[in-house]
């Protein structure tokens, strides 16, 4: 049971209030119609499965209904940070010394 900081409510809330929405920072291609099947398939189906730092989207579904990003360690389940849509993470795989 995670305890997740909602950057919009400014509080930690119980996991029950949230829904996970998968990997973060996947931009929808500008021109989907011009994507090859392979490019589109990569966007649609292929996801990272890192051991360690992972950026993911959550929505405060039973709360403020806002989507935001979470940086989570997939080994320890530690949540390193929550940040709003459009922001960049401070903790990344590159700068986290433990992962």
């Amino acid at each position: 049971m995670f305890y997740i900081y909602c950057p919009y409510c400014g509080e930690h809330r119980e996991e029950e209030e949230f829904h996970p929405k998968g990997q973060a920072h996947l931009a929808r291609p500008e021109n989907p119609d011009e994507c090859t099947d392979e490019e589109w398939g990569n966007y649609l189906y292929f996801r990272d499965n890192p051991r360690g730092i992972h950026h993911e989207i959550w929505v405060h579904a039973i709360g403020c209904r806002k989507f935001f990003n979470v940086t989570r360690d997939t080994q320890t389940y530690e949540i390193k940070e929550s940040y709003r849509m459009g922001a960049t993470p401070e903790v990344t795989h590159a700068n986290d010394p433990l992962s």
């Binding site: 209904r65 989507f67 849509m85």
Partner: peptide, 13 residues
């Protein structure tokens, strides 16, 4: 509704 909000908030804010 959540799906609509997803596109609004993440793709087309």
């Amino acid at each position: 509704l959540e799906w609509l909000e997803f596109y609004h908030q993440t793709e087309w804010p």
